[in-house]
Nucleic acid binder design. Structure first.
Length: 592
DNA sequence: TTAGGGTTAG
Protein backbone atom coordinates (compact mmCIF):
# COMPACT_ATOMS: atom_id res chain seq x y z
CA UNK A 1 0.00 0.00 0.00
CA UNK A 2 2.86 2.37 0.79
CA UNK A 3 4.32 1.77 -2.67
CA UNK A 4 0.95 2.32 -4.18
CA UNK A 5 0.59 5.69 -2.50
CA UNK A 6 3.99 6.71 -3.89
CA UNK A 7 2.88 5.62 -7.32
CA UNK A 8 -0.24 7.71 -6.85
CA UNK A 9 1.74 10.84 -6.05
CA UNK A 10 3.79 10.27 -9.20
CA UNK A 11 0.57 10.17 -11.17
CA UNK A 12 -0.50 13.42 -9.61
CA UNK A 13 2.85 15.00 -10.55
CA UNK A 14 2.43 13.81 -14.10
CA UNK A 15 -1.00 15.45 -14.18
CA UNK A 16 -2.78 12.17 -14.70
CA UNK A 17 -5.14 12.26 -11.73
CA UNK A 18 -8.08 12.65 -14.08
CA UNK A 19 -6.87 9.81 -16.28
CA UNK A 20 -9.25 6.90 -15.87
CA UNK A 21 -6.76 4.31 -17.12
CA UNK A 22 -4.10 5.22 -14.62
CA UNK A 23 -6.46 5.88 -11.76
CA UNK A 24 -8.39 2.71 -12.50
CA UNK A 25 -5.29 0.64 -11.82
CA UNK A 26 -4.67 2.29 -8.48
CA UNK A 27 -8.27 2.02 -7.43
CA UNK A 28 -8.36 -1.62 -8.42
CA UNK A 29 -5.46 -2.41 -6.15
CA UNK A 30 -6.85 -0.43 -3.22
CA UNK A 31 -10.38 -1.71 -3.58
CA UNK A 32 -10.00 -5.42 -4.14
CA UNK A 33 -6.49 -6.70 -3.45
CA UNK A 34 -5.75 -8.36 -0.16
CA UNK A 35 -3.33 -5.70 0.99
CA UNK A 36 -5.53 -2.87 -0.25
CA UNK A 37 -7.45 -0.18 1.61
CA UNK A 38 -11.04 0.34 0.63
CA UNK A 39 -11.19 3.75 2.29
CA UNK A 40 -8.35 4.94 0.14
CA UNK A 41 -10.09 3.62 -2.96
CA UNK A 42 -13.19 5.51 -1.99
CA UNK A 43 -11.24 8.75 -1.56
CA UNK A 44 -9.60 8.34 -4.94
CA UNK A 45 -12.92 7.55 -6.53
CA UNK A 46 -14.46 10.75 -5.14
CA UNK A 47 -11.67 12.77 -6.72
CA UNK A 48 -12.23 11.51 -10.24
CA UNK A 49 -14.32 13.84 -12.39
CA UNK A 50 -15.76 11.20 -14.73
CA UNK A 51 -15.18 7.66 -13.64
CA UNK A 52 -15.73 5.04 -16.34
CA UNK A 53 -17.58 1.76 -16.04
CA UNK A 54 -14.40 -0.12 -15.11
CA UNK A 55 -13.90 2.12 -12.10
CA UNK A 56 -17.51 1.82 -11.00
CA UNK A 57 -17.36 -1.96 -11.38
CA UNK A 58 -14.20 -2.35 -9.40
CA UNK A 59 -15.43 -0.23 -6.50
CA UNK A 60 -18.72 -2.15 -6.46
CA UNK A 61 -16.64 -5.30 -6.20
CA UNK A 62 -14.62 -3.78 -3.39
CA UNK A 63 -17.76 -2.94 -1.45
CA UNK A 64 -19.05 -6.44 -1.97
CA UNK A 65 -15.82 -7.96 -0.65
CA UNK A 66 -16.08 -5.73 2.42
CA UNK A 67 -19.70 -6.83 2.87
CA UNK A 68 -20.85 -3.24 2.36
CA UNK A 69 -23.69 -4.42 0.17
CA UNK A 70 -25.81 -1.32 0.63
CA UNK A 71 -23.00 0.72 -0.89
CA UNK A 72 -22.91 -1.55 -3.96
CA UNK A 73 -26.51 -0.81 -4.71
CA UNK A 74 -26.11 2.92 -4.07
CA UNK A 75 -23.06 3.13 -6.28
CA UNK A 76 -24.91 1.39 -9.07
CA UNK A 77 -27.70 4.01 -8.92
CA UNK A 78 -25.06 6.69 -8.96
CA UNK A 79 -23.55 5.06 -12.02
CA UNK A 80 -26.84 5.16 -13.87
CA UNK A 81 -27.44 8.76 -12.87
CA UNK A 82 -24.04 9.66 -14.28
CA UNK A 83 -25.13 7.98 -17.52
CA UNK A 84 -22.34 5.44 -17.41
CA UNK A 85 -23.49 2.28 -19.14
CA UNK A 86 -23.11 -0.92 -17.13
CA UNK A 87 -21.37 -3.84 -18.81
CA UNK A 88 -21.15 -7.57 -18.16
CA UNK A 89 -18.71 -7.00 -15.31
CA UNK A 90 -21.17 -4.76 -13.49
CA UNK A 91 -23.91 -7.22 -12.78
CA UNK A 92 -22.40 -10.31 -11.16
CA UNK A 93 -21.16 -8.50 -8.03
CA UNK A 94 -24.25 -6.32 -7.96
CA UNK A 95 -26.59 -9.29 -8.06
CA UNK A 96 -24.48 -10.92 -5.39
CA UNK A 97 -24.82 -7.81 -3.26
CA UNK A 98 -28.63 -7.90 -3.53
CA UNK A 99 -28.50 -11.54 -2.65
CA UNK A 100 -26.31 -11.14 0.44
CA UNK A 101 -28.23 -8.08 1.54
CA UNK A 102 -31.53 -9.89 1.08
CA UNK A 103 -32.68 -6.98 -1.04
CA UNK A 104 -35.54 -8.63 -2.89
CA UNK A 105 -37.00 -5.53 -4.53
CA UNK A 106 -33.63 -4.21 -5.66
CA UNK A 107 -32.74 -7.68 -6.86
CA UNK A 108 -35.77 -7.83 -9.08
CA UNK A 109 -34.97 -4.41 -10.50
CA UNK A 110 -31.41 -5.43 -11.21
CA UNK A 111 -32.77 -8.53 -12.91
CA UNK A 112 -34.88 -6.29 -15.16
CA UNK A 113 -31.83 -4.15 -15.92
CA UNK A 114 -29.82 -7.19 -16.90
CA UNK A 115 -32.43 -8.01 -19.52
CA UNK A 116 -32.83 -4.38 -20.58
CA UNK A 117 -29.10 -3.94 -21.11
CA UNK A 118 -28.99 -7.17 -23.11
CA UNK A 119 -27.20 -9.62 -20.84
CA UNK A 120 -29.57 -12.55 -21.19
CA UNK A 121 -26.71 -14.46 -22.79
CA UNK A 122 -24.15 -13.62 -20.14
CA UNK A 123 -23.63 -16.75 -18.10
CA UNK A 124 -22.03 -14.98 -15.16
CA UNK A 125 -24.92 -12.58 -14.70
CA UNK A 126 -27.53 -15.26 -15.22
CA UNK A 127 -25.88 -17.74 -12.89
CA UNK A 128 -25.70 -15.11 -10.21
CA UNK A 129 -29.40 -14.44 -10.68
CA UNK A 130 -30.13 -18.13 -10.10
CA UNK A 131 -28.07 -17.95 -6.96
CA UNK A 132 -29.85 -14.81 -5.82
CA UNK A 133 -33.33 -16.28 -6.17
CA UNK A 134 -32.18 -19.37 -4.31
CA UNK A 135 -31.04 -17.08 -1.54
CA UNK A 136 -34.45 -15.42 -1.54
CA UNK A 137 -35.98 -18.90 -1.20
CA UNK A 138 -37.72 -18.42 -4.53
CA UNK A 139 -37.01 -21.62 -6.33
CA UNK A 140 -39.61 -21.07 -9.06
CA UNK A 141 -37.91 -17.82 -9.99
CA UNK A 142 -34.49 -19.46 -9.93
CA UNK A 143 -35.82 -22.17 -12.18
CA UNK A 144 -37.40 -19.61 -14.53
CA UNK A 145 -34.06 -17.84 -14.97
CA UNK A 146 -32.41 -21.18 -15.60
CA UNK A 147 -35.05 -22.23 -18.15
CA UNK A 148 -34.79 -18.97 -20.08
CA UNK A 149 -31.03 -19.11 -20.44
CA UNK A 150 -30.00 -19.66 -24.04
CA UNK A 151 -26.89 -21.58 -22.95
CA UNK A 152 -26.58 -23.19 -19.55
CA UNK A 153 -23.18 -24.21 -18.26
CA UNK A 154 -22.17 -26.54 -15.44
CA UNK A 155 -22.33 -23.67 -12.95
CA UNK A 156 -25.98 -23.00 -13.84
CA UNK A 157 -26.83 -26.65 -13.23
CA UNK A 158 -24.87 -26.91 -10.02
CA UNK A 159 -26.32 -23.70 -8.62
CA UNK A 160 -29.84 -24.93 -9.25
CA UNK A 161 -29.13 -28.35 -7.76
CA UNK A 162 -27.56 -26.83 -4.69
CA UNK A 163 -30.54 -24.47 -4.37
CA UNK A 164 -33.07 -27.27 -4.31
CA UNK A 165 -31.04 -29.33 -1.90
CA UNK A 166 -30.31 -26.42 0.45
CA UNK A 167 -34.00 -25.71 0.79
CA UNK A 168 -34.69 -29.33 1.59
CA UNK A 169 -35.86 -30.58 -1.80
CA UNK A 170 -33.19 -33.23 -2.15
CA UNK A 171 -35.23 -35.50 -4.40
CA UNK A 172 -35.94 -32.67 -6.82
CA UNK A 173 -32.27 -31.79 -6.73
CA UNK A 174 -31.47 -35.34 -7.73
CA UNK A 175 -33.92 -35.21 -10.65
CA UNK A 176 -32.09 -32.15 -11.94
CA UNK A 177 -28.73 -33.79 -11.30
CA UNK A 178 -29.71 -36.68 -13.55
CA UNK A 179 -30.34 -34.26 -16.42
CA UNK A 180 -26.91 -32.59 -16.32
CA UNK A 181 -25.13 -33.26 -19.62
CA UNK A 182 -21.49 -33.14 -18.44
CA UNK A 183 -20.84 -33.35 -14.72
CA UNK A 184 -17.59 -32.26 -13.14
CA UNK A 185 -16.45 -33.05 -9.61
CA UNK A 186 -18.06 -29.90 -8.17
CA UNK A 187 -21.40 -31.05 -9.48
CA UNK A 188 -20.94 -34.59 -8.16
CA UNK A 189 -19.89 -33.26 -4.82
CA UNK A 190 -22.86 -30.95 -4.63
CA UNK A 191 -25.24 -33.89 -4.92
CA UNK A 192 -23.20 -36.18 -2.68
CA UNK A 193 -23.01 -33.48 0.00
CA UNK A 194 -26.77 -32.95 -0.29
CA UNK A 195 -27.35 -36.57 0.61
CA UNK A 196 -24.83 -36.47 3.43
CA UNK A 197 -26.40 -33.38 4.97
CA UNK A 198 -29.80 -35.00 4.99
CA UNK A 199 -28.34 -38.15 6.56
CA UNK A 200 -29.01 -40.21 3.43
CA UNK A 201 -25.66 -41.94 3.58
CA UNK A 202 -26.51 -44.94 1.45
CA UNK A 203 -27.45 -42.72 -1.44
CA UNK A 204 -24.26 -40.73 -0.93
CA UNK A 205 -22.19 -43.91 -1.12
CA UNK A 206 -24.06 -45.13 -4.21
CA UNK A 207 -23.45 -41.83 -5.96
CA UNK A 208 -19.80 -41.87 -5.00
CA UNK A 209 -19.37 -45.33 -6.53
CA UNK A 210 -20.96 -44.08 -9.71
CA UNK A 211 -18.68 -41.07 -9.74
CA UNK A 212 -15.60 -43.29 -9.44
CA UNK A 213 -16.92 -45.60 -12.18
CA UNK A 214 -17.24 -42.61 -14.46
CA UNK A 215 -13.60 -41.77 -13.76
CA UNK A 216 -14.29 -38.33 -12.32
CA UNK A 217 -11.42 -37.04 -10.22
CA UNK A 218 -11.79 -37.51 -6.46
CA UNK A 219 -10.69 -34.10 -5.25
CA UNK A 220 -10.37 -32.90 -1.68
CA UNK A 221 -13.90 -31.58 -1.40
CA UNK A 222 -15.43 -34.84 -2.53
CA UNK A 223 -13.10 -36.55 -0.08
CA UNK A 224 -14.35 -34.26 2.70
CA UNK A 225 -17.99 -35.01 1.88
CA UNK A 226 -17.36 -38.73 1.80
CA UNK A 227 -15.51 -38.56 5.11
CA UNK A 228 -18.64 -36.96 6.57
CA UNK A 229 -20.71 -39.76 5.08
CA UNK A 230 -18.43 -42.34 6.73
CA UNK A 231 -18.64 -40.42 10.00
CA UNK A 232 -22.42 -40.33 9.93
CA UNK A 233 -22.68 -43.93 8.95
CA UNK A 234 -19.99 -45.22 11.27
CA UNK A 235 -18.23 -46.79 8.30
CA UNK A 236 -14.63 -47.05 9.49
CA UNK A 237 -13.27 -49.19 6.64
CA UNK A 238 -14.65 -46.86 3.99
CA UNK A 239 -13.29 -43.90 5.93
CA UNK A 240 -9.87 -45.49 6.09
CA UNK A 241 -10.01 -46.03 2.35
CA UNK A 242 -10.63 -42.33 1.75
CA UNK A 243 -7.85 -41.40 4.17
CA UNK A 244 -5.49 -43.75 2.36
CA UNK A 245 -6.51 -42.26 -0.97
CA UNK A 246 -5.77 -38.77 0.31
CA UNK A 247 -2.31 -39.88 1.40
CA UNK A 248 -1.44 -41.85 -1.72
CA UNK A 249 -2.67 -39.25 -4.18
CA UNK A 250 -0.94 -36.35 -2.51
CA UNK A 251 -4.17 -34.48 -1.82
CA UNK A 252 -3.24 -31.47 0.24
CA UNK A 253 -4.14 -31.95 3.89
CA UNK A 254 -5.53 -28.52 4.65
CA UNK A 255 -6.88 -27.78 8.15
CA UNK A 256 -10.49 -28.50 7.23
CA UNK A 257 -9.72 -31.80 5.61
CA UNK A 258 -7.51 -32.81 8.54
CA UNK A 259 -10.37 -32.02 10.90
CA UNK A 260 -12.73 -34.18 8.85
CA UNK A 261 -10.32 -37.09 9.06
CA UNK A 262 -9.84 -36.74 12.81
CA UNK A 263 -13.56 -36.46 13.34
CA UNK A 264 -14.18 -39.52 11.18
CA UNK A 265 -11.76 -41.63 13.21
CA UNK A 266 -13.18 -40.40 16.52
CA UNK A 267 -16.77 -41.01 15.55
CA UNK A 268 -16.01 -44.37 13.97
CA UNK A 269 -14.55 -45.51 17.27
CA UNK A 270 -10.84 -45.34 16.51
CA UNK A 271 -9.29 -42.84 18.90
CA UNK A 272 -5.76 -44.14 18.28
CA UNK A 273 -5.90 -43.37 14.58
CA UNK A 274 -7.45 -39.99 15.31
CA UNK A 275 -4.56 -39.10 17.64
CA UNK A 276 -2.07 -40.36 15.14
CA UNK A 277 -3.41 -38.01 12.47
CA UNK A 278 -3.76 -35.18 14.99
CA UNK A 279 -0.22 -35.55 16.32
CA UNK A 280 1.17 -35.72 12.80
CA UNK A 281 -0.24 -32.35 11.77
CA UNK A 282 2.44 -29.68 11.44
CA UNK A 283 -0.06 -26.86 11.91
CA UNK A 284 -3.10 -27.70 13.98
CA UNK A 285 -6.15 -25.56 13.40
CA UNK A 286 -8.41 -24.85 16.34
CA UNK A 287 -11.06 -27.07 14.73
CA UNK A 288 -8.64 -29.99 14.82
CA UNK A 289 -8.05 -29.49 18.54
CA UNK A 290 -11.77 -29.21 19.07
CA UNK A 291 -12.65 -32.37 17.23
CA UNK A 292 -9.92 -34.28 19.07
CA UNK A 293 -11.17 -33.02 22.44
CA UNK A 294 -14.73 -33.83 21.37
CA UNK A 295 -13.62 -37.32 20.39
CA UNK A 296 -12.07 -37.94 23.81
CA UNK A 297 -15.26 -36.62 25.39
CA UNK A 298 -17.43 -39.04 23.46
CA UNK A 299 -15.27 -41.95 24.48
CA UNK A 300 -15.51 -41.05 28.15
CA UNK A 301 -11.91 -39.93 28.44
CA UNK A 302 -12.59 -36.81 30.45
CA UNK A 303 -9.14 -36.35 31.92
CA UNK A 304 -7.43 -36.81 28.60
CA UNK A 305 -9.72 -34.15 27.13
CA UNK A 306 -8.72 -31.75 29.91
CA UNK A 307 -5.07 -32.55 29.32
CA UNK A 308 -5.48 -31.65 25.67
CA UNK A 309 -6.99 -28.31 26.62
CA UNK A 310 -3.96 -27.66 28.84
CA UNK A 311 -1.72 -28.64 25.93
CA UNK A 312 -3.44 -26.08 23.81
CA UNK A 313 -2.85 -23.43 26.41
CA UNK A 314 0.81 -24.37 26.72
CA UNK A 315 1.09 -23.72 23.00
CA UNK A 316 -0.54 -20.30 23.58
CA UNK A 317 -3.59 -21.18 21.56
CA UNK A 318 -6.84 -19.61 22.69
CA UNK A 319 -9.67 -22.13 23.08
CA UNK A 320 -13.03 -21.00 21.71
CA UNK A 321 -16.68 -21.65 22.53
CA UNK A 322 -16.66 -25.04 20.91
CA UNK A 323 -13.56 -26.10 22.80
CA UNK A 324 -15.42 -25.49 26.04
CA UNK A 325 -18.59 -27.21 24.86
CA UNK A 326 -16.42 -30.25 24.26
CA UNK A 327 -14.50 -29.96 27.51
CA UNK A 328 -17.73 -29.65 29.50
CA UNK A 329 -19.22 -32.56 27.62
CA UNK A 330 -16.08 -34.55 28.46
CA UNK A 331 -16.61 -33.76 32.14
CA UNK A 332 -20.27 -34.76 31.87
CA UNK A 333 -19.56 -38.13 30.29
CA UNK A 334 -16.85 -38.94 32.79
CA UNK A 335 -18.72 -37.66 35.84
CA UNK A 336 -16.12 -34.98 36.54
CA UNK A 337 -18.38 -32.59 38.43
CA UNK A 338 -15.72 -30.53 40.13
CA UNK A 339 -13.75 -30.06 36.92
CA UNK A 340 -16.91 -29.17 35.02
CA UNK A 341 -17.72 -26.41 37.49
CA UNK A 342 -14.19 -25.17 37.24
CA UNK A 343 -14.13 -24.90 33.43
CA UNK A 344 -17.59 -23.42 33.28
CA UNK A 345 -16.32 -20.41 35.23
CA UNK A 346 -12.84 -20.54 33.80
CA UNK A 347 -13.98 -19.91 30.23
CA UNK A 348 -15.45 -16.56 31.19
CA UNK A 349 -12.81 -15.56 33.69
CA UNK A 350 -9.79 -16.30 31.56
CA UNK A 351 -11.04 -16.14 27.98
CA UNK A 352 -13.99 -13.76 28.32
CA UNK A 353 -16.26 -16.28 26.65
CA UNK A 354 -19.80 -15.87 27.91
CA UNK A 355 -21.48 -19.26 28.31
CA UNK A 356 -24.06 -19.90 25.60
CA UNK A 357 -27.03 -22.25 25.45
CA UNK A 358 -24.79 -25.20 24.62
CA UNK A 359 -22.63 -24.63 27.67
CA UNK A 360 -25.66 -24.48 29.93
CA UNK A 361 -26.89 -27.66 28.29
CA UNK A 362 -23.63 -29.41 29.12
CA UNK A 363 -23.70 -28.19 32.69
CA UNK A 364 -27.27 -29.30 33.22
CA UNK A 365 -26.35 -32.67 31.78
CA UNK A 366 -23.27 -32.88 33.98
CA UNK A 367 -25.08 -31.97 37.18
CA UNK A 368 -28.20 -33.96 36.36
CA UNK A 369 -26.37 -37.12 35.45
CA UNK A 370 -24.44 -36.88 38.69
CA UNK A 371 -27.74 -36.71 40.57
CA UNK A 372 -27.48 -33.04 41.49
CA UNK A 373 -30.93 -32.29 40.13
CA UNK A 374 -31.73 -29.33 42.31
CA UNK A 375 -28.47 -27.70 41.40
CA UNK A 376 -29.20 -28.31 37.72
CA UNK A 377 -32.58 -26.76 38.11
CA UNK A 378 -31.17 -23.78 39.92
CA UNK A 379 -28.72 -23.24 37.08
CA UNK A 380 -31.61 -23.22 34.61
CA UNK A 381 -33.58 -20.76 36.72
CA UNK A 382 -30.61 -18.44 36.91
CA UNK A 383 -29.68 -18.59 33.24
CA UNK A 384 -29.55 -15.17 31.57
CA UNK A 385 -31.28 -16.62 28.48
CA UNK A 386 -34.41 -18.69 28.52
CA UNK A 387 -33.56 -22.40 28.22
CA UNK A 388 -34.22 -24.14 24.91
CA UNK A 389 -35.54 -27.67 24.42
CA UNK A 390 -32.02 -29.08 24.54
CA UNK A 391 -31.31 -27.73 28.01
CA UNK A 392 -34.66 -28.91 29.35
CA UNK A 393 -34.14 -32.25 27.61
CA UNK A 394 -30.90 -32.73 29.50
CA UNK A 395 -32.75 -32.18 32.77
CA UNK A 396 -35.54 -34.54 31.77
CA UNK A 397 -32.97 -37.20 30.90
CA UNK A 398 -31.45 -36.80 34.34
CA UNK A 399 -34.87 -37.08 35.98
CA UNK A 400 -35.36 -40.37 34.19
CA UNK A 401 -32.03 -41.76 35.32
CA UNK A 402 -32.64 -40.78 38.93
CA UNK A 403 -36.38 -41.49 39.06
CA UNK A 404 -37.18 -37.89 39.90
CA UNK A 405 -40.84 -38.07 38.99
CA UNK A 406 -42.25 -34.70 40.05
CA UNK A 407 -39.65 -32.51 38.43
CA UNK A 408 -39.50 -34.86 35.45
CA UNK A 409 -43.22 -34.69 34.88
CA UNK A 410 -43.20 -30.92 34.96
CA UNK A 411 -40.28 -30.61 32.56
CA UNK A 412 -41.56 -33.40 30.33
CA UNK A 413 -44.94 -31.75 29.83
CA UNK A 414 -43.25 -28.46 29.08
CA UNK A 415 -41.00 -30.13 26.52
CA UNK A 416 -43.80 -31.91 24.72
CA UNK A 417 -45.51 -28.60 24.09
CA UNK A 418 -42.24 -26.98 23.12
CA UNK A 419 -41.44 -29.70 20.60
CA UNK A 420 -44.71 -31.49 19.78
CA UNK A 421 -43.14 -33.44 16.90
CA UNK A 422 -40.12 -34.83 18.73
CA UNK A 423 -41.01 -38.42 19.57
CA UNK A 424 -38.07 -38.78 21.93
CA UNK A 425 -39.60 -36.34 24.42
CA UNK A 426 -42.83 -38.31 24.69
CA UNK A 427 -40.93 -41.55 25.03
CA UNK A 428 -38.78 -40.23 27.84
CA UNK A 429 -41.76 -38.95 29.79
CA UNK A 430 -43.67 -42.20 29.27
CA UNK A 431 -40.64 -44.04 30.52
CA UNK A 432 -40.48 -41.93 33.60
CA UNK A 433 -44.11 -42.84 34.36
CA UNK A 434 -43.42 -46.49 33.62
CA UNK A 435 -40.53 -46.49 36.09
CA UNK A 436 -42.90 -45.67 38.92
CA UNK A 437 -45.73 -47.84 37.63
CA UNK A 438 -48.04 -45.05 36.49
CA UNK A 439 -49.42 -47.08 33.61
CA UNK A 440 -52.45 -44.88 33.02
CA UNK A 441 -50.15 -41.95 32.38
CA UNK A 442 -48.03 -44.11 30.08
CA UNK A 443 -51.17 -44.95 28.11
CA UNK A 444 -52.15 -41.30 27.95
CA UNK A 445 -48.82 -40.33 26.49
CA UNK A 446 -49.12 -43.09 23.91
CA UNK A 447 -52.56 -41.85 23.01
CA UNK A 448 -51.32 -38.28 22.73
CA UNK A 449 -48.61 -39.46 20.35
CA UNK A 450 -51.16 -41.29 18.25
CA UNK A 451 -53.56 -38.37 18.17
CA UNK A 452 -50.80 -36.05 17.06
CA UNK A 453 -49.44 -38.54 14.55
CA UNK A 454 -46.01 -38.61 16.21
CA UNK A 455 -44.15 -41.78 15.31
CA UNK A 456 -41.45 -43.38 17.41
CA UNK A 457 -38.09 -43.60 15.67
CA UNK A 458 -37.42 -47.27 15.01
CA UNK A 459 -34.18 -48.57 16.51
CA UNK A 460 -31.48 -50.14 14.39
CA UNK A 461 -27.86 -51.24 14.66
CA UNK A 462 -25.21 -51.44 12.00
CA UNK A 463 -22.01 -53.34 11.55
CA UNK A 464 -19.58 -52.82 8.71
CA UNK A 465 -17.80 -55.86 7.32
CA UNK A 466 -15.49 -55.74 4.30
CA UNK A 467 -16.73 -52.29 3.48
CA UNK A 468 -20.38 -53.37 3.46
CA UNK A 469 -22.69 -51.89 6.08
CA UNK A 470 -25.18 -54.42 7.45
CA UNK A 471 -28.25 -53.08 9.19
CA UNK A 472 -30.38 -54.85 11.77
CA UNK A 473 -33.72 -53.99 13.28
CA UNK A 474 -35.16 -55.75 16.33
CA UNK A 475 -36.50 -59.15 15.36
CA UNK A 476 -35.72 -58.47 11.69
CA UNK A 477 -35.27 -61.44 9.35
CA UNK A 478 -34.48 -59.76 6.08
CA UNK A 479 -30.73 -60.37 6.23
CA UNK A 480 -29.64 -63.09 3.78
CA UNK A 481 -27.88 -64.94 6.64
CA UNK A 482 -30.78 -64.54 9.06
CA UNK A 483 -30.96 -68.20 10.06
CA UNK A 484 -27.29 -68.45 10.81
CA UNK A 485 -27.41 -65.19 12.76
CA UNK A 486 -30.30 -66.29 14.95
CA UNK A 487 -28.58 -69.59 15.65
CA UNK A 488 -25.44 -67.73 16.68
CA UNK A 489 -27.52 -65.38 18.82
CA UNK A 490 -29.05 -68.27 20.72
CA UNK A 491 -25.63 -69.79 21.26
CA UNK A 492 -24.31 -66.44 22.42
CA UNK A 493 -27.08 -65.91 24.93
CA UNK A 494 -26.74 -69.47 26.20
CA UNK A 495 -23.04 -68.89 26.86
CA UNK A 496 -23.56 -65.74 28.84
CA UNK A 497 -26.48 -67.23 30.71
CA UNK A 498 -24.15 -69.84 32.10
CA UNK A 499 -21.95 -66.96 33.21
CA UNK A 500 -24.84 -65.51 35.19
CA UNK A 501 -26.71 -63.38 32.66
CA UNK A 502 -30.35 -62.84 33.53
CA UNK A 503 -32.38 -60.79 31.05
CA UNK A 504 -33.43 -57.48 32.53
CA UNK A 505 -37.14 -58.12 32.40
CA UNK A 506 -37.90 -55.05 34.46
CA UNK A 507 -36.84 -52.99 31.54
CA UNK A 508 -38.91 -55.15 29.22
CA UNK A 509 -42.09 -54.01 30.90
CA UNK A 510 -41.08 -50.43 30.42
CA UNK A 511 -39.77 -50.98 26.98
CA UNK A 512 -41.35 -48.07 25.28
CA UNK A 513 -38.14 -46.48 24.14
CA UNK A 514 -36.72 -49.86 23.31
CA UNK A 515 -36.62 -51.06 19.81
CA UNK A 516 -39.89 -52.81 19.30
CA UNK A 517 -42.52 -53.78 21.81
CA UNK A 518 -43.46 -56.89 19.85
CA UNK A 519 -39.97 -58.30 19.97
CA UNK A 520 -38.42 -59.54 23.16
CA UNK A 521 -35.16 -58.19 24.48
CA UNK A 522 -33.21 -61.10 23.15
CA UNK A 523 -33.82 -59.97 19.58
CA UNK A 524 -32.74 -56.35 20.04
CA UNK A 525 -30.89 -55.10 16.99
CA UNK A 526 -27.66 -54.64 18.93
CA UNK A 527 -27.52 -58.30 19.88
CA UNK A 528 -28.21 -59.33 16.29
CA UNK A 529 -25.38 -57.14 15.08
CA UNK A 530 -22.99 -58.55 17.67
CA UNK A 531 -24.00 -62.11 16.73
CA UNK A 532 -23.26 -61.33 13.10
CA UNK A 533 -19.93 -59.84 14.09
CA UNK A 534 -18.99 -62.96 16.04
CA UNK A 535 -19.97 -65.04 13.04
CA UNK A 536 -18.08 -63.13 10.39
CA UNK A 537 -14.91 -61.78 11.99
CA UNK A 538 -11.73 -63.56 13.01
CA UNK A 539 -11.37 -64.64 16.65
CA UNK A 540 -10.10 -61.76 18.74
CA UNK A 541 -11.03 -59.06 16.24
CA UNK A 542 -12.76 -55.95 17.57
CA UNK A 543 -16.47 -55.79 16.82
CA UNK A 544 -17.74 -52.29 16.00
CA UNK A 545 -21.41 -51.43 16.14
CA UNK A 546 -23.22 -48.18 15.45
CA UNK A 547 -26.77 -47.66 16.62
CA UNK A 548 -29.26 -44.85 16.33
CA UNK A 549 -30.73 -45.01 19.84
CA UNK A 550 -29.12 -45.26 23.24
CA UNK A 551 -27.93 -48.61 24.45
CA UNK A 552 -30.55 -50.23 26.64
CA UNK A 553 -29.68 -51.58 30.07
CA UNK A 554 -30.10 -55.19 29.09
CA UNK A 555 -27.99 -54.94 25.94
CA UNK A 556 -25.33 -53.08 27.91
CA UNK A 557 -25.19 -55.86 30.47
CA UNK A 558 -25.19 -58.58 27.82
CA UNK A 559 -22.45 -56.84 25.83
CA UNK A 560 -20.18 -56.73 28.86
CA UNK A 561 -20.53 -60.46 29.37
CA UNK A 562 -20.10 -61.27 25.69
CA UNK A 563 -16.85 -59.32 25.64
CA UNK A 564 -15.56 -61.50 28.44
CA UNK A 565 -16.82 -64.91 27.37
CA UNK A 566 -15.86 -64.51 23.71
CA UNK A 567 -12.60 -62.61 24.30
CA UNK A 568 -13.69 -59.73 22.12
CA UNK A 569 -13.55 -56.01 22.41
CA UNK A 570 -16.92 -54.63 21.38
CA UNK A 571 -17.12 -50.95 20.50
CA UNK A 572 -20.63 -49.54 20.39
CA UNK A 573 -21.46 -46.05 19.25
CA UNK A 574 -24.90 -45.10 20.49
CA UNK A 575 -26.84 -41.89 20.11
CA UNK A 576 -24.83 -40.21 22.81
CA UNK A 577 -21.41 -41.69 23.18
CA UNK A 578 -19.11 -44.68 22.81
CA UNK A 579 -19.04 -47.82 24.91
CA UNK A 580 -15.90 -49.96 24.78
CA UNK A 581 -16.78 -53.37 26.20
CA UNK A 582 -13.76 -55.33 27.24
CA UNK A 583 -13.25 -58.26 29.56
CA UNK A 584 -16.65 -57.88 31.17
CA UNK A 585 -16.44 -54.13 31.70
CA UNK A 586 -17.46 -51.01 29.88
CA UNK A 587 -15.44 -47.83 29.41
CA UNK A 588 -18.45 -45.80 30.54
CA UNK A 589 -18.22 -47.41 33.99
CA UNK A 590 -21.97 -47.90 33.70
CA UNK A 591 -22.31 -44.14 33.85
CA UNK A 592 -24.47 -43.25 30.88
C1' DT B 1 -16.46 -11.73 -11.91
C1' DT B 2 -20.50 -17.12 -11.02
C1' DA B 3 -21.27 -23.43 -8.36
C1' DG B 4 -18.70 -27.45 -3.60
C1' DG B 5 -15.94 -28.65 2.72
C1' DG B 6 -14.63 -29.02 8.93
C1' DT B 7 -15.10 -28.82 14.69
C1' DT B 8 -20.80 -27.68 18.98
C1' DA B 9 -24.31 -30.45 24.67
C1' DG B 10 -29.02 -33.74 24.99
Amino acid sequence: MAELKQFHSQIIRLGLSADNDAMGRIIKFSAVSESGELNYAQKLFDGIPQPDSFIYNIVIRGYLQAQLTRNCIQLYSQMLQASVTPNHFTFPPLVRACSVHNAVEEGKQVHAHILKFGFLEDGFSQNNLIHMYVNFHRLEEARRVFDKMPRRDIVSWTTLISGFSQLGFVDDAYKIFELVPQRNSVCWNCMIAAYVKSNRFKEAFALFERMLAEKVELDKLVAASMLSACTGFGALEQGEWIHQYIKSHGIELDPKLATSIIDMYCKCGCLEKASEVFNGLPHKAISSWNSMIGGLAMHGKGNAAIELLKDMERKSLAPDNITFVNVLSACAHAGLVKEGHHYFHYMTKVYKLEPKMEHFGCMVDLLGRAGLLQEARKLIDEMPISPDAGVLGALLGACKIHGEIDLGEQIGKQLIELEPHNSGRYVLLANLYANVGRWDDVANIRKLMNDRGVKKVPGFSMIELDGVVNEFIAGGRTHPHANEIYAKLDEMLESIRSAGYVPDTEELLHDIDGEDKKNPLKYHSEKLAIAYGLLKTKPGATIRITKNLRVCKDCHHASKLISKIFYREIVVRDRNRFHHFRNGECSCNDYW
